[in-house]
């Protein structure tokens, strides 16, 4: 019915959009959402490919992706919350403790 290529393309497009969100937005919550979109693009590709070969493997992979995202997200969310509580930071630009201390003035 639908060529596999089209499903894969939708997945790729979602992945790209997610990457764009991650790269272009600076709010922590937006970054997490961008990651979500990327994961989902990957999941769509997996499911589509799985259906192409008419096996359960694609769905299994998608389910594992969900488990991994869930684990990653709960930890990330609590970290966002802690960052907000401690540093009043909602943007990644406010969290620069890793910055090389001796080059504050560099462009």
């Amino acid at each position: 019915m639908i060529p596999l290529t089209h499903s894969l393309f939708v997945g790729a497009l979602l992945f790209t959009l997610g990457a764009a969100v991650v790269l272009l937005r600076r709010e922590l919550l937006f970054l997490l959402m961008g990651l979500e979109i990327m994961f989902n693009g990957a999941a769509l590709s997996a499911v589509a490919a799985g259906q192409h070969w008419q096996g359960a493997e694609g769905q299994v992979l998608a389910i594992f992706l969900m488990a991994i995202t869930t684990a990653e997200l709960v930890v990330a969310l609590i970290l966002v919350w802690l960052a907000y509580q401690r540093f009043q930071a909602i943007c990644v630009d406010d969290l620069v403790a890793l910055r090389d201390g001796r080059s504050e003035d560099s462009p």
Binding site: P3, L4, T5, F9, A12, L13, F15, T16, H52, A56
Partner: peptide, 23 residues
Amino acid sequence: LAVELAVVVFQAPLSGDEIWVSV
């Protein structure tokens, strides 16, 4: 990234319609 992914997707020899099977 978009370009490269598009190349990957459309280069693959996977054309043809799918048979719909519900797993």
